[in-house]
Design a protein around this nucleic acid. Sequence first.
DNA 1: CAGTGGTCTAGACCACGGT
DNA 2: CCGTGGTCTAGACCACTGG
Lengths: 242, 242
Amino acid sequence: MIDKNSRIPIYYQIAEEFRNKIETGQLEYGDLLPSERELAEAYRISRMTVRQAINELKLEGIIVREKGKGTFVARRKFEQDLSRLTSFSEDIKQRDWEPSNKLIEIKIITDDSLVASILNVGVKDKVYKIKRIRMANEEPIALETVFTPQKRVGELNEQDLTGSFYNTLENKLQLHIAYGEETIEAAIANKEEMKYLGIQQGDPVLLMQRTSFLQNEAALPVEYVKSAYRSDIYKFKMRLKR
Amino acid sequence: MIDKNSRIPIYYQIAEEFRNKIETGQLEYGDLLPSERELAEAYRISRMTVRQAINELKLEGIIVREKGKGTFVARRKFEQDLSRLTSFSEDIKQRDWEPSNKLIEIKIITDDSLVASILNVGVKDKVYKIKRIRMANEEPIALETVFTPQKRVGELNEQDLTGSFYNTLENKLQLHIAYGEETIEAAIANKEEMKYLGIQQGDPVLLMQRTSFLQNEAALPVEYVKSAYRSDIYKFKMRLKR
DNA sequence: CAGTGGTCTAGACCACGGT
DNA sequence: CCGTGGTCTAGACCACTGG
């Protein structure tokens, strides 16, 4: 069903409808979709708007178009086409685990010169510091601290931190991320990591640091994350193109 | 210049024109492009056609659009400097260090069922096992063990292992790698790693495992590598696209 | 041949950014 | 306020696939 008066664009509503149909199995691999002209008539919209919807799905790789033949549901993508920037929640879901979180601390800090310089803000600017335990199937996996500048994300509340922070940024705040820079190193767990992750003294952890940059002219950093992952039950995985 | 009667679509001709301008430096990072309406008038085409051209460039990541402001040349093409599969030697050179190696062992093994299954060969097939200390500026960085099936790489000698193994594969053996799958985890150094890397008992190391696949129809694995990296002087770094 | 997706037009209204 | 990109319309002609 389409709501033409919604603030959500029509093409997006239609794309979403087909995403759902494919996800729920109402449409299966190889199925033929209605033609553009049929869809335009059915939804009583212009054919160009239909094309915009269908084009989104094509770019996502979930449908395939063939001139003169029609539009078909594509085979399942071979494991997300290469290594891409993903949030913790997205990553965990890809592994078929169930992500959850426990908020430990959210506060506003200033005068942290390292964080300010990484985020490219003034040392007196307000920066959210958010500490969470990130879990998969109720098991603690990582202790994560996010720094994000208030002047770029506005007011945050606890509700915004119940799931994927990328999801909040991209959908609620309409801040789109272009890319991220990550480093991964190994260390021995400190006391805080031992406590929250339920591991022993001397156990190794993976330390990941990431800075994510916005999709705009200046490519400003919008988050700086430091995470410590339990190494006994978590590995970083990637598929890299040569 | 645009040829409206060409078989090449107008939007493609316009996109190509801007690609060239950016590549040749006529347009630089941050430059503002003409607005859609200006371009439509200049080329005497419809605004929707201009949008199609500009949208191609946006998808390629070479321009950035901002509502109410305009269209700008993006700071970099992410296509090239995304995280790519690199050999140890290539990686070290990128960091402006000088790679070198010390060969510890090269032999042919059989009947290792784990290695055989990863490399997709029979358990009786001959597999090279090559153990090397990999160094940067004469400092040991990693202890690396490569497994590679003889039937895919042919005869190897010590000369082939003085530098980048990827270089040997791709240039001498003309075997081209399509992609690799990597995992990274943390562990406490074992005795062999302590000895060769010059680190202490209880020190953490980064364990990287990689399988590299050939650029052919079957996408056969050509190498399986296990490496232990000193974590005090080495981090994994990547830039990932969202 | 009829139907498909690919391209293109000449308009329109909207939300947003900056003046 | 004006100019920007984002969305949308109701048409049109083309090249291609298949019967």
